[in-house]
Design a protein around this nucleic acid. Structure first.
Lengths: 348, 348
DNA sequence: ATCAGAATTGGGAGCGCTTCCAATTTTTGA
DNA sequence: TCAAAAATTGGAAGCGCTCCCAATTCTGAT
């Protein structure tokens, strides 16, 4: 294997200066078409590829973006959520000429917060994308911004939204839509399986949901809220507690699909008919909601689009640093998907 | 924000030469403990971080590994498989001081094969990890190796295994184990939903399965094989075809869990009792197999471990280039997990 | 023709690090 | 005690690219 050609080899072959080749490579202005072609030909003939490392060093920017995922040690929570987000981001990056690098961090380890900050400080990345619950860690967000590192928060709560660019759905409105649906179906007695603490957008869903109940004249006694951790397992366990009582609710709302799937399993185990005995809803509309039986009524969240939008937002900010950035919409549309896991309250 | 400190700042502060700092940073030999401490102190005081770009340029290696995932345009096949593999690889990379970069490619686009080769040629990555079906594209594998780029194939077929280091389970044996289980349960009439063409390891599973049938004296007329594409949807559709006939099989074997989940849905829709009317099995033991009802009998494939092992294999090869590499086991253990989707053939 | 101004090219200084090699100091062995 | 070997340091040359700035060539309006 002979040595890789460098920009100087291309320059020599094309009979121009290195600077000119660089211009062509970067689509710079002020190069005659004739010269441009000559250089392009030389590039093709030599099979030249720019050395990304050298380019990064010289230009000071790496065209790499880091995506921070939260993963607990052993749980594999929300795999569809993570991979959907990543896939969307990956494609958007490819389109924009950036490379996406995924990093995982454990939200319960404090040292990992430090690691994320180091990522921002390191200058290795042109920007960071933070997912929940990191996108709601205000100190973290401030620290990253303080180091001058471009940042976009995915599904962040209102406070984070004040600090940094963000993308997400209107979680409150989504929760409200779900609440409206269920109250219109005649339900008056609910349970809600929330997500982990510090996941503000999940909290907003609950907020919106109770808002809807209040509009129907219900108060907080109409709903029992318990805290899960977004995993299937926690859905299984918490549902056992919720559905095993005498006076069980007629509708169980879960902060994501995985927990709803777990609740479904428990309901089956208890011999309950769904949706006749209990309506169950999820959130996200990941493939899980169609895999289970009966398929879940849920809120469709365009996760891939969220990932793509985050990248666009970030790249937009990077490229127009200082200037009036072309504003990308932060809100992405959601909608309720009615499937077979919900029905009218037969007691109403 | 003041400028980032460089290695020269550290050297100046510690009162040594840049070379010495470099040695300390890279845990090189021949530095007195006293000096080492002095340098470490200076690093800490300045909050110095090495500039990865510069290091890469100077050292010629990036300590970055690329993981190639196959993703069809719109399908989100095997999300759990991909993210499990990635998570395992990610953690192993972090441990080894490498960075993992995921790239997606569309197996039906020929230009994407070219892109993968360019990744290998580019010298940007110290090595590549190929997943199916790319790990079975012999031309691709040869091209990558030909460019001198270290490579590990995940779940590759026998031919690829001849060409490059690999990790995977013994798919043939796994298929055989499943076949043995089902024949012992008295089943004699099977259907098999295979994976996409060119996914050799899925083919090996079928091979092993039929081997088991043969040992029971059954021949190829005992099994009907159809080709799916690993998605839930294809499971739904193909199962309709398989289960809708008069003389339907008593056991349906699927090349992955997603398709089995789809088959399960179709079976429900057709009003079949599972496992009384039909036994259904998956493959991989992704979370899907516990989410569906009834939970799937399947083959547990330690996917995260596979990802981690791939990285270890690759890094081992990179670091001991030329030398007798510390051989990492290519085979990872699998085992059959019996859940509720299978039962004895009641007609037997 | 003539010349200001724009467009196009090239020269060369780094970007921050690793690494070869030479210089210096310390250790070892008779 | 002293030379030879080993351990420790430093000097300096790049790695391959971008980008500032100066040099050159080309416009078009006088």
């Amino acid at each position: 294997m002979t040595k890789k050609p460098t920009i100087d080899d291309v320059a020599a072959r094309a009979g121009v200066a290195r600077t000119t080749v660089s211009r062509v490579l970067n689509n710079g202005p002020n190069v005659r078409d004739e010269v441009r072609d000559k250089v392009r030909t030389a590039v093709a003939e030599l099979g030249y590829q720019v050395n990304a490392q050298a380019r990064h060093l010289a230009s000071g920017s790496s065209r790499q973006i880091a995506l921070i995922h939260a993963t607990d040690t052993e749980a594999e929570p929300n795999s569809y959520y993570h991979s959907g987000l990543e896939l969307g981001a990956l494609r958007a990056c490819a389109e924009k000429g950036y490379t996406l690098v995924t990093h995982t961090a454990n939200p319960v380890k404090e040292e990992d917060d430090r690691r994320i900050i180091d990522l921002a400080r390191g200058g290795q990345y042109d920007g960071l994308i933070l997912t929940p619950p990191y996108s709601d860690r205000l100190d973290l967000v401030r620290a990253i911004i303080g180091h001058g590192c471009p940042l976009v928060c995915v599904s962040a709560g209102p406070e984070s939204q004040q600090l940094a660019p963000w993308v997400g759905i209107d979680d409150r409105a989504a929760g409200e839509a779900l609440g409206t649906l269920l109250t219109e179906l005649g339900h008056r007695h609910f349970a809600y399986i929330d997500g982990i603490e510090g996941h503000i957008s999940a909290g907003m869903r609950l907020q919106g949901f109770t808002d809807a109940l209040e509009k129907t004249g219900l108060d907080s006694t109409a709903i029992r809220v318990v805290r899960g951790n977004f995993t299937f397992k926690s859905g299984v366990e918490l549902a056992a507690d919720i559905l095993g009582v005498q006076d069980r609710p007629t509708a169980l709302v879960c902060a994501n699909d995985d927990m709803a799937a777990g609740a479904l399993l428990t309901a089956h185990t208890l011999g309950l008919q769904i949706p006749a005995d209990i309506s169950i809803t999820g959130f996200d509309d990941t493939p899980v909601s169609e895999i289970v039986w009966p398929p879940l009524t849920t809120v469709h969240q365009p996760i891939r689009q969220l990932g793509a939008r985050a990248v666009e937002q970030l790249v937009g900010g990077i490229q127009s640093a200082g200037e009036p950035r072309a504003s990308v919409d932060s809100y992405v549309a959601f909608w309720v998907v009615e499937r077979l896991s919900t029905a009218a309250n037969r007691n109403s």
